[in-house]
């Protein structure tokens, strides 16, 4: 694949990924609005009943108010994540903090009802900055989490451990307790994204664990940045 093909691939893949994530965010926002709408309607119902002489249940009113406040907060949090995700395409290649990117991507994947719970832990002495394509890296991690969730299921738990045990990069170990989670690994799209990012992927001796070696700087990323004239 030459440089132009790579850029075309990132654009096409990126558009699909952007659409998928935005659809899941809009679903989350619709759910939030539906709860606020129904709770507000319920307050109206209670007010009407009170007008007809029914005693007002103050504890119920308090619960409704609290529920609306919680949902508004949930909405703000969701929009903040959406905003961070939207800005991940601002610069095609830049330095990122892996933990930040990983955490946001896991939260975005969590908007899908089919995604397993994701627990992230870091075992690192210093914070390594990684020169990468943030958007493509998010795409890669998102695809891996979705793939793992297909087997682990929404009740399953995927754990991720990040460590910086080499001088050249970070190590991300993704573990699922469900046998066969990685049977379909790697899909062609996961493989291609990893290749462009210069990430080495392998299954470890533990058959339920996938390992990603994420370099701080890779030749592939430097080449991509040159093509993009950054």
């Amino acid at each position: 694949m030459n440089a132009n093909d790579t850029i075309n691939y990132i654009n096409a893949e990126g558009l699909q990924f952007f659409g998928r994530v935005n659809a899941s965010i809009s679903h989350e926002l619709k759910n939030i609005l539906a709860i606020i709408s129904e709770t507000s309607g319920f307050l109206n119902d209670l007010t009407d009943l009170a007008r007809q002489g029914e005693p007002l249940n103050l504890s119920l009113l308090g619960n409704c108010n609290q529920s609306i406040a919680e949902e508004i907060q949930r909405g703000f949090t969701t929009i903040k994540k959406m905003n961070r995700f939207a800005h991940s395409v601002d610069v095609p290649v830049t330095e990122i903090d892996l933990m930040d990117t990983l955490s946001l991507t896991a939260q975005l994947a969590g908007f899908l009802s089919t995604t397993s719970t994701v627990r992230i832990n870091a075992d690192r002495k210093g914070v390594g900055r990684i020169l990468t394509s943030p958007f493509l890296l998010q795409n890669l991690i998102y695809r891996i989490l979705c793939l793992a969730s297909e087997t682990a299921g929404p009740d399953g738990e995927i754990s991720i451990l990040v460590s910086s045990d080499t001088d050249s990069g970070d190590l991300m170990r993704i573990h699922s307790p469900v046998p066969g989670t990685w049977n379909a690994f790697p899909t062609p799209k996961i493989e291609e994204a990893a290749r462009i990012l210069g990430i080495e992927m392998s299954l470890t001796d533990d058959p339920e664990q996938l390992q990603l070696k994420i370099p701080y700087v890779s030749n592939q990323i430097v080449a991509l940045a040159k093509v993009l004239q950054l």
Binding site: N31, A34, I35, E38, T39, G41, F42, D45, L49, S67, E71, S113
Partner: peptide, 16 residues
Amino acid sequence: DDEKKFLDTITERLKL
């Protein structure tokens, strides 16, 4: 519905 809050609230309204 898997949104429990939504389910509980709409259930209360429909019961009315």
